[in-house]
């Protein structure tokens, strides 16, 4: 009975992933090894280009910073939300989801209005005399990160509120009543228990930001090109699916490596974390 449940319950989802994702994508990526110049020639070409390496490193950097910022911002906000009374809590969760309902083009238009040369931030700073020339905030790594954090904080809040809710309140109260200060309670009780949620959030945000292409393209421009945009160019402009699949394979390998490092850290914090 247990054995049946153990292997039977994850079976449909496993079959779906294997049949609809792993096999088709593996067949696509297999084409990258069939080049006349040798099995790994397309990969060698990728890593031999300084520009492409720079794109890869920039993508990693942006994704990691986005993940770290989203983790901190999302965790604190979810913690506050989890303490709110029921109705207010639901309203806050709904409000947090709203940014996800906007399309990428209008969203980047909004950032243009806020961060642009004649934008709200520059106008405000100039009117209070902090600056005399408008700052160039758009089309920088910073603007890409801001726009991505904006998109991933809601995801983090949604994931973490559920987890923080699940932490039995009597546990934190017990810790406090035993005389533990708030910070040790946080570090020793709440943080380990929230680790599974933090790791899921971190994995979702990292993979999401690492593969994104529309946001970096609209708010970063060519100066901030990321892997997703590069892949898109190959696939949809030059119809070079071998090149696109090469980029995809590199992205998949790197993401799997980072995700397993994250899981390892998580298990150190809390052995129960998946």
């Amino acid at each position: 009975m247990t054995k049946l449940a153990k292997w039977g319950l994850p079976l449909p989802a496993t079959i779906a992933v294997v049949v609809l994702l792993i096999i088709p994508v593996a067949l696509t990526i297999a084409t990258t090894f069939g080049e006349a110049k040798g099995a790994f020639s397309t990969y060698a070409a990728f890593f031999n280009s300084g520009f492409r390496r720079a794109v890869l490193f920039r993508t990693l950097e942006v994704a990691l910073i986005t993940t770290a910022l989203s983790l901190v911002i999302g965790f604190v906000t979810a913690y506050v939300i989890a303490q709110m009374p029921g109705r207010l809590k639901s309203i806050m969760i709904i409000a947090a989801v709203f940014p996800l309902l906007t399309g990428v083009v209008v969203r980047s238009f909004a950032w243009l209005i806020i961060l642009g040369k004649n934008g709200i931030v520059n106008d405000t700073l100039m009117s209070i005399g902090l600056i005399t020339e408008p700052l160039s905030m758009l089309y920088t790594e910073g603007s890409v990160i801001v726009a991505m954090v904006y998109l991933f904080v809601p995801l983090m809040i949604l994931t973490l509120t559920g987890v923080l809710e699940g932490i039995p309140r009597d546990l934190t109260e017990a810790s406090a009543s035993l005389g533990a200060k708030p910070i040790p309670t946080f570090l020793q009780v709440i943080l380990p228990l929230a680790t599974p949620g933090l790791i899921v959030g971190a994995v979702l945000v990292f993979t999401g930001s690492f593969t994104s292409y529309a946001t970096p393209q609209l708010l970063g421009g060519e100066k901030q090109m990321m892997m997703g945009t590069f892949l898109y160019q190959r696939a949809m402009v030059t119809f070079d699916w071998v090149g696109a699949s090469t980029v995809a394979a590199i992205m998949v390998v790197i993401t799997i490596a980072i995700v397993s490092i994250m899981s390892r850290i998580a298990r150190r914090l809390n052995p129960m974390a998946v």
């Binding site: 243009l112 209005i113 642009g116 609209l218 421009g221 060519e222």
Partner: peptide
């Protein structure tokens, strides 16, 4: 060059916001 555009709507946004 401030930024190169990829769609017509992006261009119109760049013009209308004075970028």
């Amino acid at each position: 060059v401030v930024k190169n555009y990829n769609t017509g709507s992006e261009l119109v946004n760049l013009i209308s916001t004075g970028e």
